[in-house]
């Protein structure tokens, strides 16, 4: 289908974008890469009065290592994250997750900030941000503020970003050498949204798991940290029993809703399968 009509304004700076958002009001939407918004427009699932295009704001692009923090501008494209040696070295979970995002032509255009602000419960970046304890930097008329990933995602397509604010950048902690990351998702076709996915991060030293973070996606209205399963693994070595206990504990952590393709029981089963595979990867390094 074709999108409904809307007005359009291109911002050259963050201040101009905020001014335009104030002027066009709550019915306006911000467009970055547009890889989720344009399909929603074409299918008439979204009908904003206006689009504020932030795509030309240079200061919102780029990957910068600053001490123990990897700062990624909101407009940084998925393909740029995929090509970044610094990301692969210092925040490897992102490098492992990015090939799972849609297809090349979509990764060439879609942005990390757009994906996070869209907060699709089936998307990869929200789960990675939660696993790693990322911090979102948000700009509004009254200045800038920072929100942790744990507080940022508030429900289906709902975040801490107010209608008159925009996401500026995401800060990921740089990973220390004894930490490992793994990422897996199960989808019906390559590049489709995951039925269930898992972004994982843990300290593995001497074969023992500590500080395990298992961030599941498309099991609820936002990414979910499986805290019971993580607690089970704390201080344990990799073993069949440890994996089984963690898989069992997922029943306390996850209460998924079914969707068109998966019943709640099937989603739990897939989550347990992913847990086994991901723990094997973490243990193997």
């Amino acid at each position: 289908m074709k999108a409904p009509s809307f007005e359009y304004a291109k911002a050259e700076s963050v201040d101009e974008a905020l001014e335009l958002l104030g002027r066009f009001g709550d019915d306006a939407k911000v467009i970055a890469g547009g890889q989720s918004l344009v399909p929603a427009l074409n299918m008439r699932l979204a009908g904003p009065s206006a689009l504020i295009d932030i795509g030309a704001i240079g200061e919102l692009r780029g990957i910068k290592l600053d001490g123990a923090v990897m700062r990624i501008g909101a407009l940084t494209r998925h393909c740029e994250i995929m090509a970044s040696g610094e990301i692969a070295r210092h925040v490897p979970l992102l490098a492992k997750a990015v090939p799972n995002i849609a297809h090349e032509a979509i990764r060439n255009r879609g942005t990390i900030g757009g994906s996070l602000a869209n907060a699709d419960p089936a998307a990869e970046w929200p789960a990675c941000s939660l696993a790693l304890g990322a911090v979102m930097e948000i700009a509004g008329q009254n200045g800038r503020r920072k929100v942790s990933a744990a507080d940022f995602f508030q429900g289906y397509y709902t975040t801490a970003i107010e209608p008159d604010e925009i996401l500026i950048a995401i800060e990921f902690p740089v990973i220390s050498a004894d930490y490992r990351s793994a990422f897996m998702e199960l989808s019906r076709r390559k590049g489709d949204y995951a039925m269930v996915g898992l972004a994982a991060h843990a300290r593995v030293s001497g074969g023992v798991f500590n500080d395990v973070r298992l961030s599941f996606f498309n099991v609820a209205d936002r990414p979910v940290l499986a805290v019971s399963a993580a607690a089970v693994l704390e201080g344990k070595e990799m073993s069949v029993q440890a994996v089984e206990q963690a898989q069992q504990a997922l029943g306390d952590d996850l209460d998924p809703l079914g969707d068109l393709y998966c019943s709640p029981e099937y989603k739990i089963r897939l989550a347990r399968v992913l847990t086994g595979r991901v723990l094997s990867q973490l243990a193997a390094g």
Binding site: Y8, I31, G34, Q35, V38, G55, E104, A105, I106, R109
Partner: peptide
């Protein structure tokens, strides 16, 4: 699929004004 500034994109997910 077309190229924009050297990389492939979805022509249907890109607005002409962009």
């Amino acid at each position: 699929t077309v190229r924009v500034d050297g990389r492939t994109v979805r022509g249907c997910l890109t607005l002409a004004v962009q």
